[in-house]
């Protein structure tokens, strides 16, 4: 699973951080940092995060 966040769109709503804290976090400056290649066990949480993101910034692909 490959996760990408479109930085042009992401507006730090932080919904993804609530839904999938193992994959999405905020750094000291409240900027989003994330694991581009999370383990498969995180898939349901990542899918929830993608649906919850209010600006559709999260993409999941299979590569």
């Amino acid at each position: 699973m490959h996760v990408t966040v479109d930085r042009g769109r992401c507006d730090i709503h932080a919904q993804c951080v609530f839904e999938a804290p193992a994959v999405f976090q905020l750094d000291d400056d409240d900027e989003l940092v994330y694991d581009e290649r999370p383990e498969a066990v995180h898939r349901p949480a990542v899918e929830r995060a993608a649906t919850s993101c209010p600006v559709a910034a999260i993409r999941i692909s299979e590569r």
Binding site: I12, A14, V17, F18, P21, Q25, L26, D27, D28, D30
Partner: peptide, 12 residues
Amino acid sequence: HGYIRDLTTTYR
């Protein structure tokens, strides 16, 4: 306003 990380950690 400005301490979002605290919300996502301490208060989650």
